[in-house]
């Protein structure tokens, strides 16, 4: 049990009569790389939100490092080491790239209530470093509203990494990006995860990326976990092939 950094047990989420999640369980070993896949509407984002604290589940418990965090507010979970990105890009749109990163660094430094601007200046070199890490140093003074979608995705990821999380929850971190851009960004993610020894759970539609990067894969459909296993087990699972892989392999064939 101590091996699991995060374990969710019997999670259900109902919207009225509709069940977005039904009795979902998921355990993440410390240091593992987990992909969550499944067709649209499967409940992947809902699950990520339950784990991140954005959504309170109707039933079930979420345990982080042996501590029950089911009803804990998102900012407290962030304080406990959960860092996350959202499917719909979430940054501070009216600020510059640098200010966005600065805010994340202030969070990491715990100086959010300080009245001394010197506390910001000491972070300058760190901010520049982090902005550079996600490849945005040439647009660091641009307002986020004015930068490309892909760059916003990079920025959000960089901000989350800046807070120094132990567990990363990434909901479609490369959605809407071009193929090359996606692979670059995933390479960056995996590099950081390996280097810092983080635990990673990511939601992703690109099957190649998922099967190349993930150590374990959770397949969801209609609010439930359909299968869980390593890439070989998942690709051999007939249910998965039928419900998910078949359709997406076909879709991929059409775009090539």
């Amino acid at each position: 049990m101590a091996d699991f950094i995060l374990s969710a047990e019997g999670i259900s989420k109902k919207y009225g009569a509709f069940s977005a999640l039904t009795n979902v369980s998921l355990k993440l070993k410390s240091g593992e790389i987990r992909a969550v896949i499944g067709p649209n509407g499967a409940g992947k984002s809902t699950l990520t939100n339950v784990l991140g604290g954005q959504i309170l589940p109707t039933a079930g418990t979420v345990v982080l490092d042996g501590r029950i965090v089911t009803g804990l507010a998102p900012h407290r979970r962030a304080g406990l080491g959960i860092g996350r990105t959202f499917q719909i890009n979430s940054t501070f749109r009216h600020m510059t790239v640098r200010e966005n990163m600065l805010a994340a660094c202030v969070a990491a430094a715990g100086t959010g209530y300080s009245l001394f601007s010197s506390k910001l200046r000491v972070l300058d070199s760190r901010v520049a470093e982090l902005v550079d890490e996600v490849g945005l140093s040439n647009i660091s003074e641009s307002i986020v509203e004015a930068i490309s979608h892909g760059d916003r995705k990079r920025l959000e990821l960089g901000m989350v990494l800046a807070t120094g999380p132990r567990l990363l929850l990434l909901d479609e971190p490369t959605a809407g990006m071009g193929l090359n851009e996606r692979q670059d960004l995933f390479k960056l993610i995996v590099d950081v995860v390996k280097k810092r020894g983080l635990t990673l759970m990511f939601v992703e539609h690109d099957i190649d990326i998922v099967f190349n990067l993930a150590e374990r894969i959770t397949v969801m459909a209609r609010g439930s976990v359909l299968a869980e296993g390593n890439p070989d087990e998942i690709s051999a699972d007939p249910h998965v092939q039928e419900i998910y892989l078949g359709e997406s392999v076909a879709a991929k064939g059409a775009t090539c």
Partner: peptide, 29 residues
Amino acid sequence: RLVLNAPLGLVIRSVGENPGRAAALGFSQ
């Protein structure tokens, strides 16, 4: 002006602009 130029001001603006993102970074809205 001083508050706005300080970390507190940055955090206040962050929460004001996107409370969800600010919370996910660790700030209490």
